[in-house]
């Protein structure tokens, strides 16, 4: 029977594919780097994934080998970090990481912390923004005054307890000295909930609010970075408004398992730098709405360590900290 043959053929092809893949990953690793496919673990969907896919393509171009982005979502990054730890420290398994390396550890989801990874390079930062419905509050000060007068009444939308937007909100409202109620809801619903008036304020990424801000339906009050962001340069920073303590950004970069040979890290770092400076990455940053922030391995390591301290304290204060068994 013809179709049976076809099916058998297809099966054979699939088997070959698998066999090909497995011999590939056990090929000799002493010669030139990379001599086989590099797997880049991506921990989240959404912007993290889109930018990750771009970076993988960019690395490929500057490294002269194949870099495949592979999604391993779950547990706020824990699943992917653990996968990297289970692999040999050869440089062929890298991770598109973020502050989640600290949050997942202090949440008790991973037994290891950021020190189990060797930083390669920081690539970008994304900056959360505080937004309200137009006509409700015109400035951060108005919002703060109302929240202080009515403790616990202001409803602030976050993605979920312990999510990065929750931590950012906690820093903002602690600095403002106001007690508010956090409403965790599904991802991406902030604009709709604000428009409907079910929540009073929300902390999310600028891309979600930009179009509504331009149309005059929602108002972005302030960003949480030290400097204004290029994609939304009309929005002031919390620092400019006098709340100097607010300095929160979500960084993204590349890391490998600790113990990866120096030569491999250097090669990857160089490729990352070349891509970070490319016109292509610049164009993407404008469209997607992130800020390019290249740091080399050493600088990146310092940033991660500094951030980890901050996150550790914050999660303890919020009662979210937990130790892994």
């Amino acid at each position: 029977m013809k179709l049976t043959k076809k099916i058998v053929g297809a099966l054979a092809a699939i088997t070959l594919l698998f066999a090909g893949a497995s011999t590939n990953s056990f090929a000799g690793s002493h010669s030139k780097f990379p001599s086989k496919t590099i797997e880049m673990t991506v921990l989240f969907g959404g912007t993290a994934k889109s930018v990750g896919q771009l970076v993988a393509k960019g690395l490929e171009k500057n490294l002269g080998g194949t870099v495949v982005p592979v999604s391993r979502p779950g547990g706020g990054g824990a699943v992917g970090y653990k996968y990297i730890q289970s692999r040999p420290a050869s440089g062929y398994d890298i991770v598109w990481n973020s502050n989640s390396v600290s949050t997942s550890h202090h949440r008790g989801r991973t037994s290891f912390n950021y020190k189990a990874f060797t930083p390669i390079a920081a690539m970008s930062i994304e900056v959360p923004v505080l937004a309200v419905k137009s006509g409700t509050f015109n400035s951060v000060k108005e919002l703060a005054d109302y929240a202080k007068k009515n403790p616990g009444k202001l409803k602030v939308g976050i993605s979920g307890k312990g999510a990065f937007t929750h931590l950012t909100s906690a820093i903002i409202f602690d600095t403002l000295g106001a007690k508010v109620t956090y409403i965790p809801y599904g991802k991406g619903k902030a604009p709709a909930e604000l428009l409907a008036g079910r929540i009073d304020a929300a902390v999310q990424w600028p891309g979600q609010f930009r179009s509504f801000h331009k149309a005059g339906q929602l108002k972005m009050l302030a960003v949480t970075s030290q400097e204004r962001i290029a994609s939304d340069s009309s929005i002031p920073t919390m620092k400019e408004l006098g709340y100097k303590k607010v300095d929160v950004t979500m960084w993204r970069g590349l890391a490998a398992k600790k113990g990866t040979p120096k030569a491999q890290i250097k090669a990857l770092e160089k490729a990352a730098e070349a891509y970070a400076n490319s016109a292509e990455f610049k164009a993407a940053s404008k469209k997607i709405g992130f800020t390019i922030n290249y740091l080399n391995s050493k600088q990146f390591g310092k940033q991660i360590a500094k951030d980890d301290k901050k996150i550790k304290k914050l999660m303890k204060d919020l009662g979210l900290a937990k130790k892994a068994k």
């Binding site: 699943v79 989801r109 965790p184 979210l320």
Partner: peptide, 22 residues
């Protein structure tokens, strides 16, 4: 089963990281 998105806690994962995926 898995990570609860709202409270961010793990449910019925028996300490396994893989199970966080649900």
């Amino acid at each position: 089963i898995g990570t609860d998105e709202i409270e961010g806690i793990s449910r019925f994962t028996f300490g396994s990281t893989q199970m966080l995926q649900g």
